[in-house]
């Protein structure tokens, strides 16, 4: 760090970060504040749309209407399901990748991380094609005789969950993989030499040490599922609404911007609360053993 006594050094950091600061105030904070204000306005077709009068109408509507309860609950349940599946699939995969070496490792990494660079819309389309009643999954299941009638995956929770796991599991693999990289390569040998079986080494030595990676990966997956839009919209259709698609419909369908804004604000608040409490929990639990 440079000395703070030098007056140039007191001004320079502000100068250097001022373009970013201006951008964030003008294009990030102001729009968010506007949205917050908008959420307290009301919508009345007879009075020409948005009415700039402060009221809690939208929040009362969202928080008291069982229709919205259902949507928030579905979003939450979806996020939990996707997160759990990502942990169960992504953690072992990261561990397997970690134990591979050379060419195969790079190929597998590419196959898992590459899809991150492909638009969510494209990846979701792939699942839509697979899920169709004449899709590959149904055709092959029918052909080998596992099922008699096509199973419904399109416009079901199962379908949305499968596709979201596909979209988000790379984040889990990356997060766990990063914490495996920090693991001492000899740690497993140390456990074995002390008489532990490979399973005990995995459960009592490896998993506890990569727990921070699993937890931070879960947080990313949870937050991204809770606000996912394109995948639930395409695969869930009109019936399986989540918070993001509901806000979208309020904005661009019914044009009730204040109500849409209120839904968005609630999503943001829920997100921030969950992320910060979760981070606090992780910090308290691991501050002593891990930095």
């Amino acid at each position: 760090m440079n000395t703070l006594s030098n007056p140039v050094n007191q001004v320079r950091p502000y100068l250097l970060s001022s373009p970013a600061l201006l951008l964030y105030i003008g294009l990030f904070m102001i729009p968010l504040i506007m949205t917050l204000m908008l959420s307290f306005y009301s919508y009345d077709v007879d009075r020409g749309g948005v009415v700039a009068e402060f009221s809690f109408t939208n929040y009362v509507e969202v928080l008291s209407d069982s229709y919205f309860h259902g949507i928030f609950f579905r979003t939450f349940a979806l996020s939990i399901a996707v997160t759990v599946l990502c942990v169960l699939l992504g953690t072992p995969e990261a561990y397997i990748l970690h134990r591979m070496s050379g060419r195969w490792k790079s190929i597998c990494m590419l196959a898992i991380l590459g899809p991150l660079l492909v638009s969510v819309v494209v990846r979701t389309l792939g699942w839509a094609i697979l899920f169709g009643s004449k899709g590959v999954i149904n055709e092959s299941l029918l052909a080998i005789g596992v099922i008699d009638t096509p199973i419904k995956l399109m416009f079901t929770n199962t379908g949305v969950i499968i596709a979201l796991v596909h979209v988000l599991v790379p984040f889990m693999v990356l997060s766990v993989w990063a914490s495996l990289q920090k693991l001492d390569p000899m740690i497993e040998n140390a456990g074995l030499s002390l008489g532990a079986s490979p399973f005990i080494v995995l459960r009592q030595i490896v998993v506890p040490q990569i727990m921070p990676g699993i937890l931070s990966g879960s947080l990313i997956v949870f937050a991204l599922t809770a606000s996912a839009f394109a995948t639930p919209s395409i695969l869930g259709g009109r019936r399986l609404k989540v918070v993001a698609t509901t806000a979208y419909d309020e904005y661009l369908g019914t044009l009730n911007w204040p109500l849409g804004a209120a839904i968005a604000v609630l999503l943001l608040v829920a997100n921030v609360i969950i992320i910060t409490t979760y981070n606090k929990f992780i910090e308290r639990k691991y501050s002593q053993a891990f930095k």
């Binding site: 001492d184 030499s193 008489g195 079986s197 506890p208």
Partner: peptide
């Protein structure tokens, strides 16, 4: 014989301590 059955004590270059314990 498996490493876990040899009853050897090993001190690793990196120590390989269990950081969560």
């Amino acid at each position: 014989l498996k490493p876990s059955k040899r009853n050897l004590g090993i001190v690793f270059q990196s120590y390989a301590l269990f950081h969560h314990m």
